[in-house]
Amino acid sequence: EVYKVKIKIERVLPNGEKVEEEITIEVEGMSEEELLALARELAAEPGVRIKEIEIEKLPP
């Protein structure tokens, strides 16, 4: 199964400015739980906050 994972994050820059970013990846052969863990890892940097995680199962 192939999933499209869209992660919206908010990053706080050293000057205090907040910037929103969106990361989209396609992943194959992982469960939804593994995808959530991967998304959290991607956003685990200091000053980064996850705003939204969207997981979509793509048709075969």
Rank of each mutant, 00 (worst) to 15 (best):
V12S: 15
I25S: 02
E17L: 09
P59A: 12
G16I: 00
E28S: 08
I55C: 03
S31M: 08
A44T: 10
E34N: 11
K51H: 04
G47N: 09
E22L: 09
K4F: 07
I50H: 00
V12M: 06
G29V: 03
K6W: 07
L58N: 04
P59Q: 11
K6H: 06
N15Q: 02
G29L: 03
E1Q: 09
E1F: 04
V12H: 07
E1G: 10
L42S: 05
S31L: 07
P46M: 08
E21T: 08
P46R: 15
P46T: 12
E41D: 14
E33H: 13
G16P: 00
V48L: 13
E26F: 12
V19W: 08
E32D: 11
R49G: 03
A39V: 15
V27L: 11
G29K: 11
N15F: 02
E56C: 05
I25T: 02
T24R: 03
E54W: 14
E1V: 13
V12D: 07
R11K: 10
L13K: 08
V5H: 00
L42I: 11
A39I: 09
L36R: 13
E21Q: 13
R49H: 14
K8D: 01
L36P: 03
N15M: 03
L42R: 07
E41P: 01
I9C: 01
E10V: 13
A37L: 11
V48M: 09
T24A: 08
P60A: 08
K6C: 03
A43K: 04
I7T: 00
I23G: 00
I9E: 00
A43F: 09
R49P: 01
E33D: 12
K4I: 07
I25D: 00
V19L: 06
S31R: 08
E45F: 13
G29A: 13
V12W: 09
K18Q: 04
T24L: 11
E1W: 15
E21Y: 15
E10Y: 05
K8W: 14
V12L: 10
R40V: 12
L58Q: 06
E1I: 08
R49C: 05
I53A: 01
M30N: 11
N15H: 03
V5I: 07
P60C: 04
K57H: 05
E52R: 14
A39N: 01
R11P: 00
L36K: 07
L38H: 07
E41V: 14
E56N: 06
L36G: 05
L35I: 13
E34K: 13
A39P: 01
I7W: 01
L13F: 13
E34W: 15
E56K: 12
I7F: 04
I50R: 00
E21K: 03
R11W: 06
E54L: 15
E10H: 04
I23K: 02
L35N: 01
K8L: 08
E52N: 13
V27K: 06
L58A: 09
E56I: 15
E21V: 12
A44I: 09
K6V: 08
I55K: 03
V5S: 00
L42Q: 04
E33I: 05
P60N: 06
V48N: 03
A44Y: 13
I23Q: 02
E1A: 11
I25E: 01
P14C: 06
E10L: 03
E28I: 09
E26K: 08
E26A: 08
A39C: 07
V19R: 10
I23A: 01
T24G: 02
K6P: 00
P60I: 06
I23S: 01
I25C: 03
E28R: 01
L35D: 00
V19H: 08
Y3V: 15
V2M: 15
E10T: 05
V48C: 03
G47D: 09
L38G: 02
E1K: 04
E56P: 02
S31I: 08
I9K: 01
R11L: 03
K57Y: 12
G47H: 11
V12A: 10
A39D: 00
K18I: 15
E32H: 13
K57T: 05
A37E: 06
E33P: 05
E22V: 10
E54I: 15
E22W: 08
P14V: 05
E54Y: 15
L35H: 03
I9G: 00
I53V: 08
Y3Q: 11
I53G: 00
L35G: 13
E26Y: 10
L35P: 02
L42K: 04
A37P: 03
K51L: 13
E52F: 13
G16M: 04
E52Y: 11
E28N: 12
A37D: 11
P14G: 09
K6M: 06
E52H: 14
P60Q: 11
K51P: 00
E21P: 01
E56V: 12
E21H: 10
G16C: 05
K8M: 03
S31H: 06
E10W: 04
N15K: 01
I50L: 07
Y3W: 15
E41K: 12
E10A: 02
E20K: 05
N15E: 03
A43S: 13
P14N: 08
E33L: 15
V5Q: 00
E28A: 11
M30D: 04
R40M: 15
G16L: 03
P46L: 14
R49S: 05
K51T: 13
E34T: 12
I7Y: 02
A44S: 10
L36V: 12
V12K: 09
I23C: 04
E33R: 07
L36T: 06
V19T: 08
E28H: 05
A37S: 07
A44N: 12
I25M: 15
L58G: 11
E17D: 11
G16T: 01
G29C: 03
E10N: 02
K51E: 03
P60W: 00
E52K: 08
E32Q: 09
V27P: 01
V5A: 11
E41T: 15
I23W: 10
I25R: 04
E10P: 00
R40D: 04
V2Q: 08
P59W: 14
R40W: 12
P59C: 08
G47E: 06
A43V: 15
P14Y: 02
E34Y: 15
E21G: 07
E33V: 13
S31E: 05
I50D: 00
I50C: 01
P60F: 00
A43E: 07
E56Y: 03
S31C: 04
E41Q: 14
E54T: 14
K18E: 04
V48I: 11
L42H: 13
L38C: 04
I23R: 03
R11C: 02
A44C: 05
V27H: 05
E52C: 06
P46G: 09
L38Q: 03
E10K: 01
A37T: 13
Y3D: 09
P14S: 07
I7L: 04
V48D: 02
Y3G: 10
A37Q: 13
L42D: 00
K8I: 12
R49M: 07
S31A: 04
I23M: 15
E20V: 11
E34H: 07
A43D: 06
L58E: 05
A37H: 15
P59I: 15
E28P: 08
G16Y: 02
I7M: 06
G47W: 01
V19F: 05
V48H: 02
E10F: 04
E26D: 06
V2L: 12
V48Q: 05
A43Y: 11
L36D: 06
N15P: 01
E20L: 10
E1M: 11
A44M: 11
T24N: 05
L13E: 02
N15R: 02
K4E: 05
P60E: 08
R49I: 12
V27T: 11
I7R: 00
P59H: 14
I7N: 00
E34S: 08
E1H: 10
V48A: 04
R40E: 06
E26S: 15
V27W: 09
P46S: 12
I7E: 00
E33T: 13
T24K: 09
R49Q: 11
Y3S: 15
P59Y: 12
E17R: 11
I53T: 01
S31V: 08
E22I: 14
L38T: 07
R11G: 00
K4N: 07
E28M: 11
E52M: 11
V12Y: 09
I9S: 01
K57S: 07
I50G: 00
P46V: 14
V27E: 02
R40L: 15
L42W: 07
A44L: 12
K4G: 03
K57E: 04
R49T: 06
P46Y: 11
L13S: 10
A37C: 11
I50V: 07
E21D: 10
G29Q: 03
L36S: 07
E34M: 09
P14M: 07
E33Q: 13
Y3R: 14
